[in-house]
Design a protein around this nucleic acid. Structure first.
Lengths: 225, 225
DNA sequence: CAATTATTCAATAAATTAGTTTATTGGTTG
DNA sequence: CAACCAATAAACTAATTTATTGAATAATTG
């Protein structure tokens, strides 16, 4: 096999496959998905994904070897972050492809949501329109750092963990739209369940920040007002 | 690990990883790249990629298991084709990500091209502008079926294998722009080398059909005139 | 400077994947 | 229906990947 064309092609596709290998493990994809929201330390990532620290570290190094993420050492902590916003766009295109080609994704989601009150799919476009108009209270239930990294303009930031303590700040006479990281993040689901149980008029927006950005929705960064 | 949220997330990311696994092998990527140009039989794919038929068949079945490609049996032959145009768009976004994140891709390309006459990078935008204006002869050197599946409007179809026989149809007093499947396809390179050796004024357009489509370039299908 | 903490490294076993070889299937043709 | 062909399946070896464990490193703290 001395053919230089073959050597060239093999070398090129081997490089492309580095990206493919990096995103061929469920756990690495979950890590990448989290990092697309905001940077984190190894320990935080391990905790959120249910991995041991050593195992998370290995997966993160695999992502770094493919140059999808970068690290910064501050004191004893190593912070991982995505190397470029295009990485998040690529991850999203992969997610959208999986949704469109693999019927199992929809099945798994339906099975998870069935039996939960108020998780009926809403008319997204109408909901997004009401958000645009400011006709609803928008609630971002992700951790504060993720909110600061990018959120829907005008959204309130009340992380799920603190929601119970801040219920008094929310109105009963207005519709509340909760959102989080996206369709496969459970924070907004739990928030809506809690709000409904307390008598609020709450619905969930499935779309996350990456999805909204992709459809040209404006984003705000930092704290509001 | 009875936490239903974890079970849900594991199931979802496992589905995403099916796509990742499918595109984690260099050979499968090469197969997918070819199929994005036009459908082919197993044997044709095996020959073009330098795989044994049995091995190619296995890889193709892996792509099919991820629903990225589909098959149709006609007589004794099985034809593989991409399941949807979004698969090609995904493949392209992966390729672009690899080009932007992995410096090795550019290195490998430079090393392959160095020492070849007339392969100096051209000013692409200016070249594309001249193509749009019809100021040059455009030459599609891919196999005819690929040309018919989609080509630059006004381009001549002369597959590389038949180029030598059709040199008399080409003018000496006008610039000829040859293109093929894209930056990592060698057909246009070989065409330009041959044309230059015969005294033609030829240059290569690196971009392939998928790239041009992505920048909104109009496409023609079927035979010209 | 010893102890602590976050992370990485190294070693291992288990599981998965890739490529090869040798059937087998299913359709076509003489 | 026997011979032939494209494609797949099955069996096997070699190589790679994964999770786990325990040790090593490197920065910080008492």
């Amino acid at each position: 096999m001395r053919n230089p064309n073959r050597v060239f092609k093999d070398a090129i596709y081997e490089q492309f496959a580095r990206i493919g290998k990096a995103v061929s493990s469920p756990k690495r994809l979950e890590l990448l998905d989290l990092l697309c929201q905001w940077e984190r330390t190894v320990e935080a990532l391990a905790k959120e994904t249910g991995l041991t620290v050593a195992n998370a570290s290995q997966h993160l190094q695999a992502l770094r070897a493919a140059r999808l993420v970068e690290t910064e050492k501050v004191g004893v902590f190593v912070t991982y972050r995505v190397a470029d916003q295009v990485v998040c766009e690529f991850f999203r295109s992969m997610r959208v492809l999986a949704e469109s080609r693999l019927a199992e994704v929809e099945q798994i989601k339906r099975r998870f949501l069935e039996g939960r009150e108020g998780m009926e799919p809403v008319d997204r476009d109408a909901l997004i329109e009401r958000i645009r108009e400011g006709a609803v209270i928008i609630l971002d239930v992700r951790p504060v750092e993720e909110y600061n990294a990018g959120h829907i303009p005008g959204a309130m930031s009340i992380p799920l963990k603190e929601l119970e303590r801040h219920l008094s700040e929310l109105p009963h006479n207005q519709e509340i739209v909760a959102y989080c990281r996206g369709p496969y993040c459970v924070l907004a689901i739990q928030a809506v369940e809690m709000l409904r149980a307390k008598g609020f008029n709450a619905v969930r927006l499935e779309e996350g920040i990456q999805d909204l950005r992709a459809i040209g929705f404006p984003m705000a960064v930092g704290e509001e007002k």
